[in-house]
Design a binder for these strands. Sequence first.
DNA 1: CACTGTTGTGAACGCTGTTTATCGTGATAC
DNA 2: GTATCACGATAAACAGCGTTCACAACAGTG
Lengths: 253, 253
Amino acid sequence: MTTTAPSMTTRRERVREQTIDEIKAAARAELVAHGRGGIQLRAVARSVGLTAPALYRYFPGIDDLVTAVTVDLYDELNAELEGARDAATAATDPPDAYEAMLATSRAFRRWAVGHPSEFGLLFATPPAGFAHAPDTPCEEASSRFGTVFASTFIQMWEENPFAVDPPEEMAPGLVAGVEPYWTWLTDTLAPSMPIGAVVFFLEGWVRIYGIVALEVFGHLSWAVTDGGPMFEETMRSLARDVGRPEAYRPPAA
Amino acid sequence: MTTTAPSMTTRRERVREQTIDEIKAAARAELVAHGRGGIQLRAVARSVGLTAPALYRYFPGIDDLVTAVTVDLYDELNAELEGARDAATAATDPPDAYEAMLATSRAFRRWAVGHPSEFGLLFATPPAGFAHAPDTPCEEASSRFGTVFASTFIQMWEENPFAVDPPEEMAPGLVAGVEPYWTWLTDTLAPSMPIGAVVFFLEGWVRIYGIVALEVFGHLSWAVTDGGPMFEETMRSLARDVGRPEAYRPPAA
DNA sequence: CACTGTTGTGAACGCTGTTTATCGTGATAC
DNA sequence: GTATCACGATAAACAGCGTTCACAACAGTG
């Protein structure tokens, strides 16, 4: 990664890349410490030992800097999740996709709880800032994130197809709404998957996201002292709902 | 409400109250337009026709102003939800708590989709700002909000007890974590409710919150064109999970 | 009428993000 | 080896921010 095609990168380009990384690291630290609204360009500049105007050689403004950090965070989270998924897949013989989904979800929660500010930046940016306009790098990174979870769900269904609702029973308009995504899925990743399984996957993702977001944002503390067991309970009930109630196992620790 | 004990409120106090309301209204508009990070005290002052320092006669700082608006938003949302719940309860004979829960949830989604910025402020404030410290007016308003949903869930279970998991099957540590809230519930609202039903209620709230938050934050658009049917599907599967699959009915419109 | 406490103002302070003109410096070309 | 030049960084400046303070206008009370 560091020395691929060294002739292609001049010395200037390398030090520039390094400076950019330094700036982004400082921006992330500032972001974690003071939140999205509290980040200050001048503080970032001070942190890397530069004056404020110097940053404009690297980023057009503070918003673009935050966007760059956001994309990096998606990449970091994706790598973390894919690592957990692959480790779990390698550890199970024969492969057990529920185990992979469990590991992925736990990694997701671990990252979210450990990086609440970053989680808020990625998954709870209200549309006021229009950070989620289509065709932005953010959106692209976000959809790559979705695929990580989608892949394990698909594999779970293919390994062990469970009963799903037939299309005619679903809420009106739902089939039409999911159809584009469903046809894309059946064209690329899961040729034989019924539309009901896609809906089930989305509902599963809703539960995982919901429990993690509520915990991170402190909206569960009125009912539960620790979010961990509640998250585990969600995983257990997911095992039941995919027809494998015996598959859930509490975490080792 | 306007003329209770008129002797107790002097003329000065009344006009002061009115000014405060004006300021909060302007602050909310600014909040909706530019988000939590983009609100400006001077802009609020301009909007009500005052200079910036004048606002300090009413609020110690901009953070407290935002907090006051937040509390008001909780109250508004609570009123909206309780109104929908009571209307649904009055329209069903005999009373049907699922119907009430459905109406409450739909009101919740309607408010969230119609007021995305406000929703983000209430339900997705990352803990960097420590807006959710215990014993704040925010926390108090937040717990009142929780009770609206809790009451319909409880009534739903009492009208039609459904099968819930026994404590010994639940994820380790969960019983201990929910026990304080459970004992409070059985002491006050639901004397005969098993702890499994409380856990089910929490999982239900997670699903409702999850689907609404994902839609509002634009994190569902990669899979679904419109969040409405997906939300309705969640309501339908909730009906199934409380043992009343026939109770769900699509919205009238 | 004078007195008092509240409300609003203008000026000021230190800070912010951003722009501009300017200076030094490392890489490149002759 | 030296001239050239693009790039990196800077200081100065600007408008605007939240906040503080001293001071003026005013309503309500005796």
